[in-house]
Simulated assay, not measured.
Amino acid sequence: MSLWPVYTGSGEPHDGIEQLPPPPPWRAFDGGPVLPPPPAGGGTASPDRAHRARTYRATPECVQLVNAALYLRRPLLVTGPPGSGKSSLAYAVARELGLGPVLRWNITSRSTLHDGLYQYDPLSRLYAAGRAHGAGVPDGVDRAGIGDHLRLGPLGTALLPYARPRALLIDEIDKSDLDLPNDLLNVLEEGQYEIPELVRIARHTPTAALLPDGADGTAEPVTVEHGRVRCRAFPFVVLTSNGEREFPPAFLRRCVALRLRQPHGEHLEEIVRAHLGEPDAYAHELIDRFLQRGSGGELATDQLLNALYLTGAAGLTASSRDDLAALLMPYLSADAGGAAADQGSDAAF
């Protein structure tokens, strides 16, 4: 029996992912051999990311669209201003649904599809092959041990044939080269890719043992057959964007789009409560001032959290707390800051 919603936004881990119904026929994948899911844990070994996953507070719209992406086996394109929780969402979903450590691909202007799929060091392999030849290894054998010189990237790991989906965060896709979104189309649509270096040697070396992304030297490698990787459970892919550029229509058509906004009212208080406990009288006052100040320009929720933490922990006088809070919450746009300054006391603490 299927379950809606699979992701509830409650923050409590559960096995609801096991009740996810079969995919639409046009999004079914049959990769193998099937790999067991990684240990669930907290979705990440990093304490700060574990905290973000545990304290994330999803809106009803967010819950609905995350589930739409999970059911449809489509990437989730999350846009919103800085500090609105775009990247934290991936960790929250992974923690609640037990999807294992989040695979993270941080995008820059130099990122290419190849970077996300795998990294290969041909020079180290050439050196290893020369040493093996000197040791008398016969021809026809992969003297270089290619698996020692090739490692899967975060996207390449996410598309391995795991029994349940992995969580993949492709962070700040709007920073990429213009070609990257289009390059991603075929891989995310087909749920598979080839490693040419392995395809070329598949006749005499049909399998290769490779380390997945995030694995250390003690981890068990995964087996890739004939240089081809095809997923079984399509990963939960979160692509984040600050809304600084437009994406091609073909790319947008293949994504479920979620627009996050800065939290207000009770939602903002829930976030504060999750991070710092029940707000006191001064915290409520500072939240109100944050909301009023935010009407004059762009602010981020983590600016408020920083101000609340410091003003509560530093033992300051009332006037000093106000001065510090104002300094910790500058506008994120110079234009907004100038406009707010022109408004005088309307935006001032």
Rank of each mutant, 00 (worst) to 15 (best):
G315L: 05
G116E: 07
A281M: 08
E244Q: 15
G147S: 12
F290Y: 09
P221W: 02
E278N: 12
G9H: 07
G145K: 10
L3W: 12
R54I: 01
I107L: 06
A340V: 09
L178I: 11
A202S: 15
H149I: 07
A336I: 03
A340S: 09
A92G: 08
D121P: 04
A339H: 11
P196L: 11
V6T: 04
K175N: 01
E172D: 11
A250N: 13
L327G: 02
H204R: 07
P279S: 04
T205Y: 01
G136V: 05
L211R: 15
A40C: 07
F247Y: 13
L97N: 02
S111E: 12
A314H: 03
T223N: 00
Y91V: 00
L178T: 09
F349S: 03
R261P: 00
R110D: 12
R273H: 05
P75L: 08
V224E: 00
Y309P: 02
I146W: 00
G312E: 02
Y162S: 02
A132F: 02
N306A: 13
G116Y: 07
R110F: 04
L211N: 04
Q343V: 04
H267I: 13
V141R: 13
F236D: 09
P206W: 06
R166P: 01
V229S: 04
V34T: 09
L99N: 03
A341E: 11
P101S: 15
E225V: 14
R228W: 04
P22T: 11
A307I: 10
A318L: 13
G294C: 08
S176C: 08
T311R: 01
Y331F: 15
T223H: 00
T207A: 03
W105M: 05
G130K: 04
G136F: 06
L276E: 11
L76W: 09
L89T: 03
F236W: 08
D148G: 14
T108S: 14
G140A: 03
Y282M: 10
T79I: 02
D216A: 14
G9P: 07
A313F: 01
Y120I: 14
G98Y: 00
A307K: 07
W105E: 08
T59I: 07
G217V: 13
P212D: 04
G243K: 06
A233K: 00
G344H: 10
L332R: 15
I170Y: 04
P138A: 14
T240A: 02
H275T: 08
Q303V: 13
H14V: 06
L258R: 00
G130Y: 04
G147T: 14
P5W: 05
E246H: 08
L305R: 00
G116P: 05
G32K: 03
V187T: 14
L180I: 10
W26F: 05
P13V: 09
T108G: 01
Q292A: 14
S87Q: 13
A132N: 07
P47T: 08
E266F: 10
A167R: 06
A326V: 12
E244S: 15
P39E: 15
L113P: 07
T207W: 01
D183E: 15
L126Q: 10
A92S: 15
A132V: 03
D115Q: 09
W4L: 12
E172Q: 10
D288S: 14
A94Y: 04
A326C: 06
G80A: 09
V256T: 05
G145P: 05
V137F: 02
D302C: 09
A209I: 03
P154R: 01
